[in-house]
Design a protein around this nucleic acid. Structure first.
Lengths: 121, 121
DNA sequence: TAAAGTAGGTACTTTAAAGTAACCAGTAGA
DNA sequence: TCTACTGGTTACTTTAAAGTACCTACTTTA
C-alpha cells in the first residue's frame, strides 16, 4: 500500500482530505467565522503560504466541503465558506477535539486492555 | 507552522497520530479481531513493512490507544490490542466512515452553502 | 510615478516520512 | 547442519509534500 490507498477506500479518502497541515485549522476558522475572503483567511492562519492555502481550498472545494464564490470585480473578490458537508465534517472534528482535550487532561491515567467482544463493533 | 503544530494543539496531536498510512486499517483490524500478535497483524495488513508496523504500534502504544503484551518466551510472543482509548477512537473513526460512505454514494448531489450562524458551533 | 491590495500561479529547494533490504538472537524441527 | 520462525532494528534510498520566493493583471490612492 501507499499514499494512494484513498483511491479505493472512502474512509482513507476522507482522512487524506483532512490530515494535512492547516486543513483542520482552516475548517475550524470557517466554522467559527462563517464565509471569509481569501486574504482574510490567510491572515487568520498566520504563517500559511498562498500556495498551500490555495491547494487546501481547492481540495476541500473538490470534495464538496467548502464552496467558492468568485466575483470578477476589480480587485477580485473570492469568498469561501462551509457547505452542508463541511458542517457535517465539522461535527465529527468537534467530537475528535472533545476526546483530544479529555485525553490531554488525564494523560497520566491507566490504559485498560479491552477483551474481544467489548469493542462495540 | 509546520508538522510540529501537534506540540501545541491536542487536536493536531490526535490527527497526527491517526493520519499516516496504515494507522486506521491497523486500528480497524484490532477492533474487528481483538488482540493480535505482531506476525498475524502483519499478515492482515498485506504490504506493510515491519518497520512501519513497528512505528505505528509504538506511536499508538505511547498515545495509550493500544496495549502491548510481551512474553519473553522462545520464540517471543507479543500481542497488541485496543485500550479504552482505542475503543473511544474507534467510535469516532466509525462515525467518519459512515459519513465517508454516504458521501461516496451521493457524490453527485448539491453542495449547499451555509450562512453564518447556521453552523451549530 | 510608484506603491499597495486583490487572488492566486510557477519554479525551485528542502524535508519528513515511507519503502527496501539486510540483519539480529535463540530454539525447534527436518 | 541448515532452515525457518519469532519480533523486531538498522542503514540506505526514494518520493510526496511543504516551504520559499518571485511573478502576474488591474486599479486605486498617495
Amino acid at each position: 500500500m501507499n499514499q494512494k490507498s484513498h483511491l479505493k477506500c472512502p474512509m482513507d479518502a476522507l482522512l487524506h482530505l483532512i490530515m494535512g497541515p492547516w486543513t483542520t485549522y482552516l475548517l475550524w476558522t470557517l466554522s467559527q467565522n462563517g464565509p471569509l475572503r481569501f486574504g482574510v483567511l490567510k491572515r487568520r492562519l498566520p504563517g500559511i503560504s498562498s500556495r498551500v492555502l490555495t491547494q487546501r481550498l481547492r481540495m476541500l472545494e473538490t470534495a464538496g466541503v467548502i464552496f467558492r464564490d468568485h466575483r470578477a470585480t476589480i480587485p477580485p473578490q473570492v469568498t469561501y465558506g462551509l457547505t452542508q458537508r463541511g458542517v457535517e465534517l465539522g461535527g465529527v472534528l468537534n467530537d475528535l477535539e472533545v476526546i483530544a482535550r479529555r485525553w490531554d487532561m488525564v494523560s497520566e491515567t491507566e490504559n485498560i486492555p479491552v477483551t474481544q467482544g467489548d469493542t462495540g463493533h
